[in-house]
Amino acid sequence: MSYIECRKLTRAFHKGDTVIKPLRDLDLDIEEGMFLALMGPSGSGKTTLLNLLAGIDTATSGSLKIGGIELTSMPRSRLASWRADTIGYIFQLYNLVPVLTAYENVELPLLLHNYSKKERHAKVSLALDLVGLADRYDHYPRQLSGGQEQRVAIARAIVGDPKIIVADEPTGDLDAAAAAATMAMLKRLNIEFKKTMIMVTHDPKTAAVAQKTLHLEKGQLIENNA
């Protein structure tokens, strides 16, 4: 059994009388520790799949098991604490909380656990060091460059030590240098910290960092030179 198992995974949205199906009967297995890139044209269902894997969306039908746990039937509040333990989510547009400093943004996910202030400090420091922002604790998002913001977001995603990190076009809004730095970081998290990494990207160069690339089209995987 694979770590992540999608069976006939389908997501449908109802808009009035029409039904949109960004994902149709998708079968997918992802091994633990894998670095997977998802590519495909705009609207092909990449984000929808990522959201299901991250547990922030629920499938309409089919099954999705992660670490043996079925997500599709899990109630909302259980799903929330499952996310807190299992998932780190990296967005294209960083999504930092603007009124919080870099330090406080990274601390946020830790507030959900019973860590002491000291323990939280140790973990936040470690995460910020790892992304090379040890000197920016007190900076607010608006005082940081895009690349730095994304690094804070990466620190926030890994601070709780989740098994899986998902990233939706993490370099989509960055210049070439910042993009390369971000990808190096994600690669390191995969190799050194054994994080299962699932990343959506448009860019073949970015996808090349991954172990494996899958192509989506109209909500289905197209088998090719994987």
């Binding site: 991250a54 909302r76 996310r83 807190a84 333990d85 989510y89 967005f91 959900l112 926030r156």
Partner: peptide, 16 residues
Amino acid sequence: VREHAVLQTLGFTGFL
């Protein structure tokens, strides 16, 4: 709205 979606993604429950 967006920020609350981010918090929920991080694992904050709706109740919290």
